[in-house]
């Protein structure tokens, strides 16, 4: 016994946090399912009517109700629901007539693609901008960040979208208009990942790639702008806090060049905080910016969810909610994990 404990002890203690981490993720997902399940029960929309239509005779209605298991105890219903979800069965959408899972597999990549472009812009421009603004407080780049941060709050997304379309699409013809791709190429690219830029590259179809790119660049940049404004502002304030620390003085005392002070001594400690901020921003974009998706007729999850809500399409609403919840959990736990890997103080 004691020997076994000695042998497996170190392994167990090293594996324990990981096991615990996985358990927590599973519990969180279960919690998410419980929420969508409860929402599905309490909304005043009759799922049976959604299936049989509101002119069905009483007997048909009752039979359907029984067949759907709606008379079973709630616990049984819940676990049946969990089982369904695990198997990818999210029910049928009344507005599209297709399985919700199929719909989501189509609309989510559209949002994912745009959000990813947005976050890439937000991080690659926002982080260096914030760092430079903090290093040169009061300089022109610092002023620009202030204006951008304010604009990020004050300017509505749909307005930027409309103005962008008027200028760059209608007037200069620099970008593609609404939609994901030129209407003549719609559906021509074989679906692999659902991300048009990637799929068109896989297919070697450069014309489709260029068209997809010209369509995504404007909405993606607008999302990137909001992300950038937020990330730059947070980076700036994290950096300012760092630059006031005593260990920055220590680095100066050692004769460290300014570049080293900023990127090694001040930036390294804020990486973990930035991961959280970037994760939040990305999750926000992945939720599907309803305004941008509407203005650009982007067939993403924001659009899908809005349409479903307006049509009281419960299965679709719950399915989309599940996806958004899952995105949040994944990003949240993912940044948690990175945090632990990157911060020596959290590694313990």
């Amino acid at each position: 016994m004691a020997q076994a404990a000695r042998m497996f002890g170190p392994l167990a203690t090293r594996a324990a946090p990981l096991v615990w981490f996985i358990v927590i993720i599973l519990m969180t997902f279960l919690g998410l399912l419980a929420i969508t399940f409860v929402i599905g029960r309490v909304v005043p929309i009759d799922p049976v009517l959604a299936v049989v239509g509101d002119r069905a005779p009483r007997a048909t209605y009752e039979a359907a109700r029984l067949a759907m298991g709606l008379d079973d105890p709630l616990v049984v219903q819940f676990f049946r629901y969990v089982g369904d979800v695990v198997q990818g069965n999210l029910g049928r959408s009344v507005s599209t007539g297709r399985p919700v899972a199929e719909d989501l597999a189509r609309v989510f990549p559209a949002t994912l693609e745009m959000a990813t472009l947005g976050i890439i812009i937000g991080v690659t421009i926002g982080v260096p901008m914030g760092v430079i603004a903090a290093a040169r407080q009061g300089s022109w780049i610092d002023q620009i960040i202030r204006v951008l941060a304010l604009a990020g709050y004050a300017i509505p997304a749909f307005w930027l979208g409309l103005v962008g379309l008027v200028i760059f699409y209608a007037h200069f013809r620099l970008v593609g208009g609404p939609g994901r791709i030129n209407i003549f190429m719609d559906g021509m690219v074989p679906v692999r990942t659902g991300l048009l830029l990637v799929d068109s590259l896989i297919a070697g179809d450069m014309r489709a790639f260029r068209s997809a790119f010209s369509h995504i660049i404007l909405p993606g940049t607008i999302l990137g702008f909001f992300s950038l404004a937020y990330i730059a502002r947070m980076t700036r304030s994290f950096m300012l806090e760092q630059l006031g620390q005593e260990y920055i003085t220590t680095a100066r005392v050692k004769g460290a060049p300014e570049r080293v002070i900023i990127w090694r001594h001040a930036f390294r400690p804020i990486r973990v905080q930035l991961i959280t901020v970037i994760g939040l921003s990305y999750a926000g974009l992945l939720e599907g910016s309803v305004m941008i998706e509407t203005v650009f007729s982007w067939p993403g999850i924001g659009n899908y969810l809005t349409t479903a809500l307006l049509n009281a399409d419960m299965n679709a609403v719950l399915g989309a909610t599940l996806v958004i919840g899952a995105v949040f959990i994944t990003i949240n736990k993912g940044s948690d994990l990175l945090y632990r890997l990157l911060d020596p103080r959290a590694r313990a």
Partner: peptide
């Protein structure tokens, strides 16, 4: 506690 960089 303050004069050494915590992450290096």
């Amino acid at each position: 506690k303050f004069s050494l960089n915590p992450v290096i």
